[in-house]
Computed example of a mutant assay.
Amino acid sequence: MSEQARRPLPHDFHPPVAAFTVVSDDVSEGAPLKEDQVFDGGNLSPHLRWEGFPEGTKSFAVSCYDPDAPTGSGFWHWTVFDIPASVTELPRGAGSGDFAGLPQGAVQVRNDYGTREFGGAAPPPGDGPHRYVFTVYAVDQEKLEADADSSPAVVGFNLRFHAIGRAQLIGTYENPAAG
């Protein structure tokens, strides 16, 4: 097992919650991301659709995290929350900086690129395959105790106490060494 495969996911440290299902027209479990989801290849958030979330869900949050980034703390590519419970799908490109694909009231915080949008995969050349963990959280309140100036860590802190369900989909991406 590679060192990267052993790196924990952010929710590995959270209490167990109900599992539900997330699927995508753009990301397949364990498969390489499409060029659209790469930083210099389109930079579009993927389509995501979820179902089977627990009763009592009042909103959703969505994140994309690379635990394999060579930072010591991973890399947050996307964090959005306060998605109304009536919304169970985000179209491709919903994470754009103009917020056009997000439902009314949803909040995006800065990613680790420093922008309030989806930031695509961009591992260093030759660093091996990275995992891109798309997680949908079912939340027990309509509004998470965070705002647009919060960091992904603050959002994660609040999700630790308010997530009642979680679904994940993991894609990969590798930037080969320059030859």
Rank of each mutant, 00 (worst) to 15 (best):
D36L: 14
L144P: 02
A122W: 08
Y65F: 15
G95Q: 07
S73P: 00
A69V: 06
N111I: 10
S59L: 14
A121I: 06
E51T: 05
A31C: 13
S63A: 01
S151A: 10
P15A: 07
V23R: 15
V154Q: 00
Q4E: 03
A106V: 03
G171S: 13
A122T: 05
Q168L: 11
S45F: 10
H130K: 07
L9H: 00
H130I: 11
G105V: 11
G120M: 08
L144F: 02
E35N: 14
C64F: 06
V139E: 03
V133R: 05
G165L: 13
E3H: 04
V38C: 15
D36S: 13
P129W: 11
T135P: 00
S24M: 12
D112V: 08
S28Y: 12
E51C: 03
D25M: 07
G42C: 00
E174N: 05
H77R: 11
L48E: 11
I164P: 01
V87W: 09
V154H: 00
A18T: 04
G165R: 04
G52N: 01
A61V: 02
A122S: 06
G52M: 00
P10Y: 01
F118E: 04
E55P: 13
P125M: 13
V22T: 13
W50S: 13
T115A: 09
G93E: 03
S59H: 12
L90G: 06
D127H: 08
A122E: 10
P84C: 04
Q108A: 10
G52V: 03
D98I: 02
Y65P: 11
Q168M: 14
V23D: 14
E117S: 09
P152W: 00
V107E: 00
A85V: 05
Q168P: 04
P46D: 05
D68V: 03
G171D: 14
L33E: 06
A148G: 11
G114W: 03
T57H: 13
H162N: 02
A178D: 15
N158T: 02
D40E: 15
A163D: 14
S2V: 09
A178H: 15
T71A: 01
P70G: 08
V17G: 09
S86N: 03
G119N: 10
E29I: 05
A138I: 02
F13E: 03
V17L: 04
E55L: 07
F81I: 01
G128Q: 02
E3N: 04
S63N: 01
D98Q: 07
A177E: 15
S45L: 05
N111G: 13
S151Y: 06
A5V: 15
